[in-house]
């Protein structure tokens, strides 16, 4: 996937405008000429300038209406979307259900799904997922003493 300079520039310039507008509500310190809004305001101005620059350059080089988003072919797009969904779903599953279900179970499921999808060899994938889950648990929970929530397995482990 490719995002055109015009599109990303416009987004950044908009972000800059939003930042400048938002820092206007920051409190001023009595007796001082500059407050907590100075640095973000400068950054916002920078975003407007350089985002705007990207828009101008993008429009100029495109000759006509620029193609804001270039999509890859259907197969690559499908694979990429699935991969992105897998990553997002895995991370949010840990955030939302890590405490209740437990990290170990989630890690095992995430690994198994990922391996099955890519590897397509069930027995091998299952063995690898179990082995890796145990290894991660040993390293993080036992060796490094990271208090990973065990959820359903709290009493068992």
């Amino acid at each position: 996937m490719q995002i055109h300079d015009t599109a990303i520039g416009a987004l950044l310039a908009l972000l800059g405008v939003a930042v400048i507008w938002h820092v206007g509500s920051f409190p001023q310190v009595a007796g001082q000429s500059y407050g907590p809004d100075l640095f973000p305001r400068l950054t916002g101005i920078g975003l407007v300038i350089f985002g705007g620059g990207l828009v101008l350059r993008g429009v100029r080089t495109a000759e006509g209406a620029p193609k804001l988003l270039t999509m890859p072919d259907a197969v690559t797009l499908r694979r990429g979307t699935l991969a992105a969904l897998y990553i997002l779903a895995s991370v949010f599953a840990i955030v939302l259900f890590g405490e209740t279900v437990g990290i170990q179970i989630l890690v095992f499921v995430i690994l198994l799904v990922g391996l099955l999808a890519a590897f397509r060899r069930p027995v091998m994938s299952l063995a690898l997922a179990v082995g890796l889950t145990v290894a991660f648990d040993l390293i993080f929970r036992m060796l490094l003493r990271v208090p990973v929530p065990s959820g359903l397995l709290t009493g068992v482990l």
Binding site: I110, G114, A118, F119
Partner: peptide, 9 residues
């Protein structure tokens, strides 16, 4: 494809 899920975890 085996490395990727491991790195994600």
């Amino acid at each position: 494809t085996v490395i990727a899920p491991t790195l994600l975890i």
